[in-house]
Amino acid sequence: MRNPAARAYIRRFIPAMIVYVLMVAAATALSETALGRGPAIWGIALLPALPLLYVFWIIGRYLAEQHDEYVRMLEVRKALVATGLTLAVTTVLGFLEIYAEAPHLPLFFVPVIWFAGLCAGQIFNWIAERGDS
């Protein structure tokens, strides 16, 4: 990841993660105050979500700014594998919850599954690359 798009991604991603950690700490602290017992809790709860929304945006920017079309194809394939896995896992778990009384998975885990899916997508790319070469 040494081209300009990749460098821009890293330059945006690191501060976003720092802000995310700070927002989690802030939301946790604020939720235990008097503010956390009123309607303000809705705003407090959104604090950690905002930097993650920014992360989704910078992933989109990375794909848009990636001018190496082959690398972009690999990244898009990775994201498609992640999306497919997320849909598969959440669909299966959804039906398990309905019919088999499986424990409820909080929606928060949907992006977590997607990011784990990116790792699976990377492995898929490696296998596809090695298989074709």
């Binding site: 001018h67 190496d68 079309e69 082959y70 690398v71 194809m73 690359e129």
Partner: peptide, 22 residues
């Protein structure tokens, strides 16, 4: 070509067909 070496390798080995602009 202002692309990665990975791209050149993929095109050379037939793993990737370049776009018309490339």
């Amino acid at each position: 070509l202002e692309v990665s070496r990975q791209s050149v390798n993929a095109i050379e080995t037939g793993r990737y067909d370049p776009s018309l602009p490339l």
